[in-house]
Design a protein around this nucleic acid. Sequence first.
DNA 1: GATGAATGAGCTTTCATTCAT
DNA 2: TATGAATGAAAGCTCATTCAT
Lengths: 188, 188, 188, 188
Amino acid sequence: MTNKRERILNAAEHLIATLGFQGMSMQLVAREAGVATGTIYRYFKDKESLLRCVHEERLQEVSLALLSNVDTHNPCFEQFRVLWQNCLHYLLSNSDCLLYRVQYEASPLFNREEEERMDERYFKPVFEFFEHGRELGLFRDLPAPLLGFLALENLMLLTQKHARGCIQLNEAVFDELMDAAWNAILKR
Amino acid sequence: MTNKRERILNAAEHLIATLGFQGMSMQLVAREAGVATGTIYRYFKDKESLLRCVHEERLQEVSLALLSNVDTHNPCFEQFRVLWQNCLHYLLSNSDCLLYRVQYEASPLFNREEEERMDERYFKPVFEFFEHGRELGLFRDLPAPLLGFLALENLMLLTQKHARGCIQLNEAVFDELMDAAWNAILKR
Amino acid sequence: MTNKRERILNAAEHLIATLGFQGMSMQLVAREAGVATGTIYRYFKDKESLLRCVHEERLQEVSLALLSNVDTHNPCFEQFRVLWQNCLHYLLSNSDCLLYRVQYEASPLFNREEEERMDERYFKPVFEFFEHGRELGLFRDLPAPLLGFLALENLMLLTQKHARGCIQLNEAVFDELMDAAWNAILKR
Amino acid sequence: MTNKRERILNAAEHLIATLGFQGMSMQLVAREAGVATGTIYRYFKDKESLLRCVHEERLQEVSLALLSNVDTHNPCFEQFRVLWQNCLHYLLSNSDCLLYRVQYEASPLFNREEEERMDERYFKPVFEFFEHGRELGLFRDLPAPLLGFLALENLMLLTQKHARGCIQLNEAVFDELMDAAWNAILKR
DNA sequence: GATGAATGAGCTTTCATTCAT
DNA sequence: TATGAATGAAAGCTCATTCAT
């Protein structure tokens, strides 16, 4: 059949989201993808390599979602608003993604250099936005990754808690949160 | 020898932080703690129970560290400053703690009701601080857990990235970050 | 290689007969069968399932051996003679079978309903023979299973003792024993 | 406290009857007997030795029960009747005993020479009864242990099946069974 | 390329036994 | 004598990986 590689990646992703990192076995991935166990090893060197690929595919997907409809000709706040909303909506409809990422980053698979390379590749426009704002004197005098972090990262943790049912969120709260994020990065 | 239970808990936490949830085996914990494998089972029913205990002990430890020297007679900002600094210093000197927490919460061990019970038990004074600030009209009109989250949670991710070498932090940056956190929760 | 399942079953039976129920470990079974430990779990869900299969396969084997050359057109005694001789010869050349059975039946694996279902499946013709003899007024007025028990069961214990060297048996003794069994079931 | 040895033996016996051979652990025996685990090793060399002692104690008990009220001045059949009834009643009210014996004898603990020594010690009068009957020309020309076996052994298997609920027995059936046993040993 | 049976190292857990107190 | 915490070998079982087909 066509595109076995894709089916294997999807199967792995789905299993991790459903059963957790430890619940994902190569045999299960093979069954879910409808291939033989040995076949996975034609497309991926080993389990670690498969997990790294799932991670990268997800990062790419997130970056695309984040930047959609962000127009660099618009005012800074407007760009920020779209970025933040994109982030929120992606996370709300892909809560699995977070559960995967957090485990991946805490695992020994995580590698700083590789991560930086991928951030550079996929999130360059995001960093440029924060860099630009700082140069205008609008944002705090912090490195772009830190500004991005202040603006968007705790949204990730928050939606994760929401997905688990630990926190109830609604439109009014979202507005407060976006405002809080904006105020956090703004220069005094 | 004295305090085997504590040594086992520490060994488990350290191994999870180093090797990830799946890298932690009971044999390794035993070796790291300097006891026989069977000995672990005198103190903990099984692996799950050990992991739950690590989680709860650390929550308690964090809560104690967070609240030390916080005087409710001081002005709000002063209290906030101490809370935030406590949090920062605890996290900087206990980076294992965070690497552990993130994996625990993403694992199937995590249980919302239990978590709420523990938050209630250990972090009540923290929540009361934020509640109080909101009632004074100083903080945003958000539930206390959310205010706490805005103020302190991304410090956790940040120090985690710092511990891994992904981000360089210094005193000037810390001041900016505390200011950002304060501005995030302040009512406009 | 061919017929791994059969080799595993034989290895298990033999080990139980030799080392007892507790002496039989999955590793030993694997070694005796010439396979890897993991291989056993391709054919049997777990240890319990393996033991149940050994039990059922042997029951079936015994039933086939018992009924071979029994012709229902022959006189009752002639049929009895063949049954009894079949039983004797099977037991003499399969002493493992008995050592296994006795332990299985005393273990928590044993389940009455399952056992009745299997007796029904495998030993129906044997029961019918005794039923028929009773209806003719030849055998005692006891349920067929009990008649079968009186006629054949202590042969099982006896060959077990013989296999262990506790009792010496010879042709003359066998004739006496068969006669004793026949007299035991005969109506007065 | 008094008579720890006895309490350990009883605890072991009870646990084997309840949980089976494999369910009995030294820790459990200690708890049931109300002693420390180490204490068991003051009275018994090891687990094997403990199990052998339980076995011997039981054999002695059975032999006493079997011979009670057997009067060698009575006619043979009367003596046989009492023996057989004693055996039946003991087995019906001590079904645990059987479950234990059968497992013990099938286990590697079983040792022919030791067993013969104990049979000699405890069951001598029983063998003498059968020997005497054979010398009178009343019983078959078989060794006494074999006659005893024909007369009593399948009663053991039968009551075991009864205890498990596989067979329903009543007074009328018992009479038939005793008659069957008597006819089995009688010379033609 | 694709298969999936087979492998065996390594997992969690138990328990007979020891020994410092 | 008696204790029971500690031990660690060995149990049942899983699963990433290989390889003959």
